[in-house]
Amino acid sequence: MGILALIISKLRKIPPGKPLFLINGVIFIIISYIISWQIVVQAIICQWFSTKVIDWIFHLQVPPNIISFLQPQYRKK
Rank of each mutant, 00 (worst) to 15 (best):
K13W: 05
F69G: 11
L60V: 08
Y33E: 14
F28A: 10
I31K: 15
M1T: 13
K18T: 09
I14W: 00
K76E: 13
D55W: 02
F21R: 00
L22Y: 05
I3Q: 13
V41G: 03
V53E: 15
C46W: 11
I30C: 09
I35C: 07
G25Q: 03
F21I: 00
F58S: 06
L70S: 04
I54Y: 00
I45W: 02
F28W: 08
K10G: 06
Y33P: 00
R12L: 13
T51V: 04
I39L: 07
P63Y: 06
I45M: 02
I34Q: 09
A43V: 05
K77H: 11
I67F: 03
V40R: 01
S68A: 15
A5K: 01
D55I: 02
F49D: 09
P19A: 01
I7Y: 10
I27H: 05
V40F: 01
L20G: 00
F49T: 10
I23L: 03
Q71Y: 12
S36I: 12
G2L: 05
F49K: 12
Q73K: 15
I57A: 12
K13Y: 05
Q73G: 08
I27V: 13
N24Y: 08
V62A: 08
V26S: 14
Q42T: 06
I44Q: 02
T51C: 09
Y33K: 14
L22G: 05
K10S: 13
F69R: 15
W48S: 10
I27W: 06
P64D: 07
S32L: 00
Q71G: 06
Y74C: 13
I66A: 03
V41D: 05
K10I: 07
V41H: 04
I8T: 04
L4A: 11
M1Q: 12
C46P: 03
Y74T: 14
G2Y: 05
S50R: 11
L70G: 06
Q71S: 13
G25P: 01
F21G: 02
L60A: 08
K77T: 10
Y33V: 07
I27C: 09
I7F: 09
M1G: 11
L70R: 10
K52Y: 06
H59F: 11
G2K: 03
